[in-house]
Structures are given as structure tokens and as C-alpha cells.
Amino acid sequence: MTTAKRDGDTWILNGEKRWIGNAPWCDVSIIWARDVADNQVKGFIVENKTTPGFSVDKIENKVALKVVQNGHITLKDVRVPEENRLQGGNSFRDTARVLKMTRYAVAWMSTGCAMGAYEAALKYSQERLQFGKPIASFQLIQDLLARMIENITASQCLIVRQAQLHAEGKLSDAHAALSKAFCTSKCRETVAWAREILGGNGIVADYKVARFFNDCEALYTYEGTFQMQNLIVGKAITGLSAFL
């Protein structure tokens, strides 16, 4: 856990942050930390390269989202001026307003990931011949392709409605959580079927599908895992919180 302690006009931050995207090279980070005085989460703008006590180790050997780089941040008595504190971020509820928007976006991204895998698999199945015919003409392959476009279309309908709910001022945390959970889990199903359709080539990065297959694993987990999203939805539908 990362803590913040007020000291006159500055704050002292201590703790660690794992998996922070773009951290190995970026100039400025937003650090959320729990204020030891009131136990509330507060947000701070921290300059990565010039702030003493702030260090980043690049996370190596990932097998998903290998293009984007993630860092493990360590904060040791990092001093941040009060003016760098996000003045509207005074509790976890304020953090949740940000997470609602990022979960909204991951639902779209995972749908895009599924589209990329589906398009590659469909094209492959139209070209790959077995027994003198394109494998796309086989019933069991068409069954997989139909399931894939069904998943994609259902996800698209959901996220377009999600955008309408936002425009109408009705998008809740539970709406964004439901979309994120549904679209990432349907993406996981879809990329696995794409990988199946490519046979052996499904595990070779050059055929694209393997990349989508691996990348989906990260989308399923980040911005709150599938289980976390379901706990948010679960609380909304039962009226009971199951968070520990």
C-alpha cells in the first residue's frame, strides 16, 4: 500500500506501485496514496525523473501486451508539494470516477482485440485448403466463426449502449464493470477460437492471432480483474457488498 503523510506544504509518499503502464519512460505519474491522517485515498502528480526517492524498474519477460512497457515504481520518502495534489480527488469515490472511464475504454479495446483475431482467422480459413477445400467451408469451422462474430456483435451493442448511457448522464460504476467483465471474457473466448482455427500457425506470432490471444489475457486482468468487476455488479444487483 502507498501512504501519504502531510508535512507543512508538502506530502511525503511511501510505498510501491506495480504494473504501471508507460512508467519506464514517462516524465509525470499520477500516484494514488492513502492519507495516514484520514485514511482517504488522494491523488498526486509526481515528476518521475527529478523527484528524489522515486525509482522505476521495468517489468521484464511479459508474454502479453509486449509492446507497451510497464514499471514497478518504488517511492521512498518522496516529497510532493500540496499544489501537485489533485484537489478534487479526496476519497476512493473520486478514484472510482477515473476507473469507471478506464473500464469503459477497456470494454471497447477488448472488443477491438476480438475483431482483430476474428478477421485474421476468417481470412485464414478462406485461404487454407484441406481436402481440396477452404477450411471455411467446413461446418465445425463455420460454427466457430459464427460464435466469434456473435460475441463481437453482442459486445459492440453493449458498448455502444454504454456510450449512450454516458451521454444521458446515466453511466454507473456497475454499468462500466459489467461491460468490462462481459467484453473481456467474450474476447478471451473469441481469441481462443481464432487460435484454434489457425491450427499450428495459431501459436506463431507472425500470423497475428497469437498476439491477440496473449494480449487478451492482460485486458482481462487490468483495470480490475474479471472477479472485481463481478463483485461491483454483484453489489449493485443484490444490494449487498461482498468486498473484503
Binding site: N22, I30, I45, L86, G88, Y222
Partner: peptide
């Protein structure tokens, strides 16, 4: 993401998590 989910993540962290935090919770 249809072409590269890493690229959308890169932009999502920059635009969403970082700029979004300042936009939503900053003054």
C-alpha cells in the same frame, strides 16, 4: 486494439489513467 492492443493500452494509460485523473479530479 483491432490492430494492436498494446498500442491502445499505451494511449489508454496516457489519456485515460493519467490525463483522465487530472481532468476528472484536478482543479
Amino acid at each position: 486494439a483491432r490492430i494492436d492492443p498494446s498500442f491502445s493500452t499505451f494511449l489508454g494509460v496516457h489519456n485515460g489513467l493519467a490525463m483522465g485523473s487530472i481532468y476528472i479530479d484536478g482543479l
